[in-house]
Design a protein around this nucleic acid. Structure first.
Lengths: 204, 204, 204, 204
DNA sequence: GATGAATGAGCATTCATTCAT
DNA sequence: AATGAATGAATGCTCATTCAT
């Protein structure tokens, strides 16, 4: 009803990204219609195309921005740490904190990979591999020093990442456990899993 | 003019479920069209309605059948075991084996919950909670006995389930690691995570 | 309002072709909307797709059917005739008669060539070349015998075809001139143009 | 932010007409979008409206300018000639030369008549009728003097015009035949068609 | 004179579903 | 149990046009 008039440029763009992120998170890319999106933003469907090229492009931008921000933030978080165990703890703390504050981005970055066209898929997947490699290198460093001992580095990395990322699916802000609790919990589980049980090894 | 070849009779139903499972797994429920499904089955779209009531019904049947089969199989797998650690190992072995052989069912059972209508959603989620409770009870039993010591039972259960279920997303049959290797690996990681690091506790 | 129900197969198909032909003739391919077409046929827009694959396909089918029918009919019309002048007269009579009874088909076959996708374009253009070649061969036969003398066979053929086809743009059934009058007129003009002016040649 | 480069000032108008002519010629009025046009001109779609009132107006201006220029040029070309045969030859030479140098204008002036709104249509069609009347009056003058003898003046005029105008559809600059060749060819064909075959008439 | 963001209508096409046969 | 033709709503996207800046 209330007709907005005149240039509204960058605000509209941000609103589209924000609303698009939420809709894809809640309903999925295929199930989100651009009419819904436009209506949440408060413009007509056709007007979306002053800001995005296609629906696919919106998804790709969302994922790419997220992955690049994530990688950059990870690098900053790991920088000060030198020993494998410190790095592992820093990784867990960073991952959990980042993932519970950006649940939507993280979630769609896993769930909507299949909605990407092949060329876009390759780009996002290679960014994700770079992220996974950081964890693998930490584990490898630990294995080398003996501070950390994991059975199979890639498989363990995938297992730990799945565990840590899973927090997104059940964490709700304001719930029983605070972010700090979660970081403590996941750090404990990860560090345990990454170290051999001394008794077992002593006995062997 | 007359009867076109294609699947017929009771086989059609099975073919619809099998093709539907694959399509939802690969493309997602919203992105799968009943025309695609019919064409994979070898019938006309209208003919689907001799076998299913609606698209939603097909999804629900797939998930419900999966969850009930899963729960039943879990009960059988846990039955012979009595101590918490044995039960935990049995749970991991069962979960990993089952999940890597039914990757599609397992995957859509997580990813397509949001595509369920509210009534159907409640039914599936409560089945899933029953499954999760089994793990929580094992952990609780372990904590009670001291054989296993986890910081927060529900949170640990979710973390472990996420880790174990994650195997579906990267396991490919015929890959570097055999199912037995995976069971061994995940058992090791789970048991480590579920037991305190003696050094820590000795020192405290 | 009045809902037509049940199978109406081949009739609908014919109605789509007939209405499509008329709409493309009157408004042009680009300016014809499938909504218009559906409404002329008396069905919903989506129902068109039970009969045609795409809008482009409809255009192509119309043109291809026309060109193949035209070529076939020309062959029949020319068959009984043997001398170049007889063949030329038969060609003119056939062309004029056919073109004033199928004005729409003929018109769109010229005007909508540019609306065809490349692959379809090639097919239609090669059919049209086959038609033009028939006239060129008649002229060549005449030149050889001396019964007919034209300056440049391809250019003359194009000129005559343009002249003869032009009848479509101004002929209206029931007008001042009957089809027979037109055939007589165009035959006279064509035969005159195809024969040298004796005076000119005597003098040279 | 500030002023974008691109065409500016009075040149923009010319660029719009030139690009519009080419686009309508190649794709047709309905199939040409103002976005395409703007992009060829190097401005934004909205900026077009500083120069044209509507898309329809652009088409009308193009056709009106063409027709008025054409009529004026014809008058100049015919002025020096007095006998019907001289006038007929002058008409053919003018028409062919003009049409092969302004193929686009000529083509759209026939093909896009139907895209004109009724009021605009009437104006253009009446200009075209004035052009056709010039040829009819030449033929009538010839018939009166006996120098030229055609069966039915309007029909013959339409036939000849169609033949002469057809040159646009197949002439390509730099092809096998030069403009002079074409003028000679079309003059020959026209003069032949406009004169009776003496032999026929002697025998009758 | 140009921009960029907006509108509202319209586009070709696809969808889940129905139903007479 | 299957078909094929239909529906009506929805899809992503494009259109000519407007207008504050």
């Amino acid at each position: 009803m209330s007709r907005t008039i005149g240039s509204n440029g960058p605000k509209t763009m941000e609103a589209i990204y924000a609303a698009g992120l939420g809709l894809i998170y809640r309903h999925g890319y295929a199930a989100m219609s651009l009419r819904q999106l436009a209506s949440e933003v408060g413009i007509q469907p056709g007007s979306l195309y002053n800001h995005i090229r296609t629906k696919q492009d919106l998804l790709f931008s969302l994922l790419q921005t997220h992955m690049e921000t994530l990688l950059h933030a990870l690098n900053e978080a790991l920088e000060p740490h030198t020993t494998p165990e410190e790095q592992l703890r820093a990784f867990v703390a960073f991952h959990v904190n980042y993932h519970i504050t950006r649940r939507a981005e993280v979630f769609i970055c896993y769930s909507e990979l299949r909605s990407l066209e092949p060329a876009n898929y390759e780009i996002i997947v290679s960014l994700r591999r770079a992220y996974e490699r950081r964890l693998m290198m930490i584990l490898a460093g630990g294995n080398a020093e003996g501070a950390v001992t994991v059975p199979d580095i890639p498989a363990t990395a995938y297992a730990l990442l799945a565990m840590l990322t899973g927090v997104c699916t059940w964490y709700k802000p304001g719930g029983r456990l605070s972010p700090e609790d979660l970081v403590a919990l996941y750090t404990e589980l990860t560090v345990r899993a990454a170290k051999p049980l001394p008794s077992l090894h002593t006995q062997t």
